[in-house]
Each structure stands twice: as structure tokens, then as C-alpha cells.
């Protein structure tokens, strides 16, 4: 029943995320036949700006999907919803007045925390897998094809590595008081690496290893040999650390 409560509590956030992810996936599939002719013209123009990925983007539809979705827009949107779905918990309940009811039930604080985080992980995983279904279907409408297996693999990598954002949001939700303060602070914290540091990290090879966004995206054609196991292990450790600190903080809180 705790999972049921966590689901009822977050389902509208999840549904908004699902709609946004679906819409974004369809948008970039539908943009493909519009963008490709423009890029082909640009490739033949010696004076036009041509990013390094452009030739591959024009020639390979799978790269195009990876570049715009799993490595860029979809990932940004997914992280936003990972934070939105990860935030909440007893401190937020305290801010809106329901903590006393929750804490009057015969449930340990750890169980409250675990059930909420578990639902957040499940919801974010489903969000990450929606493009795996939507993109192959939508691709048919533009005369292209995309592997469901690649979509699921990228989705799993994104959700697995990105679980650190759920952990961070859950941790800050038990540190910062106020109904929306943890959400705002988490988003502000993530805006710095995403908007400022990410571009720098992509130009510096060693920094890529600590660039979570880069690890979440993986290689554009994902194979077992390309999975960044070490980086995943480090990010998972960080997630466990956040969750451990959050659970500890949850037990110490007074209401």
C-alpha cells in the first residue's frame, strides 16, 4: 500500500513526463525529413558552419536519433522529470501538513523512504523506455526504421546512470524544508553542470569520464563492449551514497 500511495501521489507528474517524452520523441522523428535536406545543402556549402557530427547525422538515421534524443534533448527532459519524480517525502509532507498522519501509521521511516524511491525509479525507467517504443513506430511515418533493442538499451543506460539524479533529489528533499524548495534547489544545482560545464566537459577528453550526461548517452550504437562499466559503477556508488544519506537523515528528522 505504500507503493500505491507513492504512485497516487506522483502519477500526474509521471503522466506529464510521459506525454512530454512522447511528444519530444515524435517531434524529432518528424523533423528528420525537414532537417536532412537543409543539412545536405549546408554540407555542400564551403562557407556554412558544419559541426563534426553533421555528415553522420545526415547519412545515418540511428545517429540522428541518438544525437538529438539520447544525447541531448530527451536526456535533458528526462533528467528534469527524474528530479521532479525524485523529490518529495516526509519533509514535504510536513510542509503540507500530512506528515503527522503518515507517521501515525505503523511504518518505519525507512519503509516510507524506500517505497517512494522505488516508485520514482520505476517511473523514470518507464519514461526512459517510452522512446524505445515511440521512435520505431513514429519512424515508419517518415520512411525510416529504428531498432527497439537499441532504444531499450539506451533507455536502460539513461535510467540506470541517471538514477543518481533521483537519489540527489530524494536526498535534498530530506535536507531542505519547504514544499518546493528542494525541487528548485536541485534544478538550480543541475543547471550549472548542464548549461555551463557540459560544453566544456565535451571538449576535454578526461572530463568526459566524469560527465554523467556523456555516460548516460553511451555510444551511438550501443553494444556490450561499449558499455562504460567503470563510470556506471562510480555513478551507482554515488546514487547509493545519496540514498544512504537520505535514509539516515529521514530517521533523524523530527516532526
Amino acid at each position: 500500500m505504500l507503493l500505491y500511495k507513492a504512485w497516487i501521489e506522483s502519477r500526474w507528474r509521471f503522466i506529464c513526463g510521459a506525454v512530454a517524452v512522447t511528444a519530444l520523441s515524435i517531434l524529432f522523428v518528424r523533423l528528420h525529413p525537414i532537417l536532412i535536406p537543409q543539412w545536405q545543402v549546408a554540407l555542400q556549402d564551403p562557407y556554412a558552419y558544419k559541426p563534426r557530427w553533421l555528415p553522420l547525422g545526415v547519412s545515418d538515421y540511428r545517429f540522428y536519433i541518438w544525437h538529438f534524443l539520447f544525447d541531448f534533448r530527451l536526456q535533458n527532459l528526462w533528467v528534469l522529470f527524474a528530479v521532479v519524480l525524485g523529490f518529495g517525502g516526509l519533509l514535504r509532507e510536513h510542509a503540507n501538513g500530512t506528515a503527522a498522519f503518515s507517521l501515525s501509521l505503523p511504518v518505519t521511516r525507512n519503509r516510507w523512504f524506500i517505497s517512494r524511491v522505488l516508485i520514482a525509479f520505476l517511473e523514470t525507467t518507464v519514461l526512459a523506455w517510452i522512446p524505445a517504443v515511440v521512435v520505431p513506430i513514429a519512424s515508419v511515418s517518415v520512411g525510416q526504421s529504428y531498432s527497439i533493442g537499441q532504444g531499450f538499451a539506451h533507455g536502460l543506460l539513461m535510467a540506470g546512470v541517471g538514477s543518481v539524479f533521483v537519489g540527489l533529489a530524494a536526498f535534498l528533499s530530506l535536507i531542505l524544508r519547504g514544499e518546493y524548495t528542494p525541487l528548485v534547489v536541485t534544478l538550480a544545482m543541475l543547471a550549472v553542470p548542464y548549461l555551463v560545464l557540459q560544453e566544456w566537459a565535451r571538449r576535454v577528453s578526461w572530463a568526459r569520464k566524469i560527465d554523467i550526461a556523456h555516460v548516460m548517452a553511451g555510444a551511438w550504437l550501443l553494444t556490450w563492449g561499449d558499455v562504460p562499466w567503470l563510470s556506471i559503477a562510480m555513478v551507482c556508488l554515488l546514487t547509493v551514497l545519496f540514498l544512504g544519506l537520505a535514509a539516515r537523515q529521514g530517521r533523524r528528522l523530527e516532526f
Binding site: K5, I8, E9, W12, N96, T98, A100, S104, P106
Partner: peptide, 24 residues
């Protein structure tokens, strides 16, 4: 904490503000 859960299994509490989950 463990004994407190045993207490809450057998005790009903109504808080002062009586706020409940408004999304249910």
C-alpha cells in the same frame, strides 16, 4: 523506532491539523 511501530499498530492518533492526502 521498532517499539514505536508496535505502539502505532495498537494506538490511533489524530493530529491537531487533521490534514490528509488531498490527492486521494
Amino acid at each position: 523506532e521498532a517499539e514505536s511501530v508496535r505502539i502505532r499498530e495498537r494506538v490511533a492518533f489524530v493530529a491537531e491539523d487533521k490534514r490528509l492526502y488531498d490527492y486521494m
